[in-house]
Design a protein around this nucleic acid. Structure first.
Length: 203
DNA sequence: CCGAGGATCATCT
DNA sequence: GATGATCCTCGGT
């Protein structure tokens, strides 16, 4: 078997147009993908198990009131990181989606840890693998993601997102998004059914 | 298991 | 000046 362009068997770069899908379509497609963070010559990575979509006409979205300095990556092309700082202490990471100017992104809410688990444990200060990246801010802390990665490409030296070549049979769950007060009627949270690494247990 | 409260500050009104 | 796309701890059941 031949290794992929990235050198990892079983994983490959997304094809052209992957990230230009609207956020509610891209969000479930990101489930099962591998997110790699390269730092200090080491790789920390995990499989995406939970995502949420946000669009410009969506009252829960940071882009809902138009372009601001913070959310400007949401209005750029798809396939970049949109990282924001919140609650005075947490970072959260999105994957920008859709065509340029559309104001869309997919929040990464949880990963199943794969590589560099020792680094994640020391970064997070916990040993239970289920608590390493099961939440948008936990995920960023585990991978060492902060504002310096806002706008970073997902095929770059710091962040790499890969699709599984042969996705296994997986059930995708759908639910309302978490932690919002408006736009609750849009069920735009997607998760791998039965994963022990979700930010919340299934309903 | 569950809910309440606090931490802590950049961002936007 | 108010508000979070959160997380952790603590106390009750």
């Amino acid at each position: 078997m031949k290794a992929g362009a990235d050198g990892r068997e079983g994983w490959s770069l997304p094809g052209p147009g992957f990230y230009s899908a609207p956020a509610p379509e891209l969000a479930p497609l990101l489930l099962g993908c591998l997110l790699e963070r390269r730092v200090g010559g080491r790789t920390v990575s995990g499989v995406v198990v939970e995502t949420e979509a946000y669009t410009e006409d969506d009252p829960a979205s940071h882009s809902h009131r138009g372009r601001t300095p913070r959310n400007r990556q949401m209005f750029g092309p798809g396939g970049r990181a949109y990282v924001y700082f919140t609650y005075g202490m947490h970072y959260c990471m999105n994957v920008t989606a859709g065509e340029e100017g559309r104001g869309e992104a997919v929040l990464l809410r949880a990963l199943e840890p794969v590589d560099g688990i020792d680094l994640m444990m020391s970064a997070r200060g916990v040993g239970d693998p289920r608590l390493l990246a099961s939440g948008p801010a936990r995920l960023c802390e585990a991978l060492g993601i902060d504002l310096s990665l806002d706008g970073a490409g997902l095929e770059g030296p710091d962040l790499l997102l890969l699709r599984p070549r042969a996705p296994g049979p997986v059930r995708t769950g759908v639910s309302p998004r978490i932690g919002i007060t408006r736009g609750v009627e849009r069920h735009w949270r997607f998760y791998l059914e039965g994963s022990p690494f979700l930010s919340r247990r299934a309903r």
